[in-house]
């Protein structure tokens, strides 16, 4: 992009981060009382809220029920005021539907669905403010919300986006870096087993660079894991203290 230096000669990005540095992550579990599980996450200026209902009986038509595992039902929506220009619809557009599908795939891979046959788990995520890495923030928030709901998972699911500019992989892209249109890789990782729950790449990238970018992305996901783990442990400790245990 003309006139915009995404990575300076000194190795700093537009917002002053190094190439492999994440944005500040702040999160909280148990935001709402009525839902079974809920979590809120801030990754820099991207803010996401996730709510989990279930596992419960299948809502609507029973034909959707699976006899051997639970149905994971997701909805991704963005607040109309979350983007720079106002959005007309919070959900139901093509981008949101795609995102919904991605989330469903990611969490079907992570949740132990076979423990709850003929039931349904609802995961609703909402972007309150969008500044790049929406998918990743949603996955991270949903992971915390599922844990808050006490639904067993194989592992945490940690997601992080990675770009590739001037032969350097940049992790956790912000909106300006995303909009520049370079290659972009979204990775959702199960950090303990190093299994990939979702991998998606936009634009084109030379095959030789792929390994480098993938390595940077999984390193970033493990960094996200460290932060999320801290949040979960703090939350559990707080809850235990309140219960007097």
């Amino acid at each position: 992009m003309a006139g915009l230096e995404l990575l300076s000669d000194q190795g700093y990005r537009l917002d002053g981060r190094k190439a492999v540095e994440l944005r500040k992550i702040q999160a909280r579990m148990g935001v709402f009382a009525q839902a079974d599980g809920s979590a809120y996450i801030e990754q820099g200026n991207t803010k996401a809220l996730a709510v989990v209902y279930g596992p419960h009986e299948i809502r609507g038509s029973r034909s959707k029920a699976l006899h051997d595992r639970a149905v994971v039902n997701c909805q991704y929506s963005m607040a109309t005021f979350s983007t720079g220009e106002r959005k007309r619809r919070p959900h139901g557009d093509r981008k949101s539907s795609e995102m919904t599908l991605h989330l469903k795939q990611t969490f079907e891979a992570a949740i132990l669905t076979q423990l709850y046959p003929r039931s349904q788990i609802d995961i609703y995520v909402q972007i309150l403010q969008a500044d790049g890495g929406n998918y990743c923030a949603c996955v991270n928030a949903a992971t915390l919300a599922i844990m808050d709901a006490g639904i067993p998972m194989r592992d945490y699911v940690c997601a992080c986006s990675t770009g590739f500019i001037e032969d350097t992989p940049l992790v956790d892209l912000c909106y300006v870096e995303e909009a520049a249109g370079g290659p972009q890789l979204a990775l959702a990782l199960l950090p303990k087993s190093e299994q990939i729950a979702l991998l998606e790449m936009n634009s084109r990238l030379h095959e030789d660079h792929l390994e480098k970018v993938l390595d940077a992305a999984s390193k970033a996901c493990r960094d996200v894991y460290a932060v999320l783990d801290r949040v979960v442990r703090d939350h559990v400790q707080e809850v235990c203290t309140l219960l007097g245990e």
Binding site: A33, Q34, N45, A79, T80, F81, G84, L128, Q129
Partner: peptide
């Protein structure tokens, strides 16, 4: 509470939780 709006507010009344964002276009 939402920095990319012209004005925003969050209200919590018991368990009712509302977020209002205003954009001027």
């Amino acid at each position: 509470v939402v920095s990319n709006t012209s004005g925003s507010a969050r209200v919590k009344l018991g368990h009712t939780d509302i977020l209002v964002g205003i954009k001027a276009e």
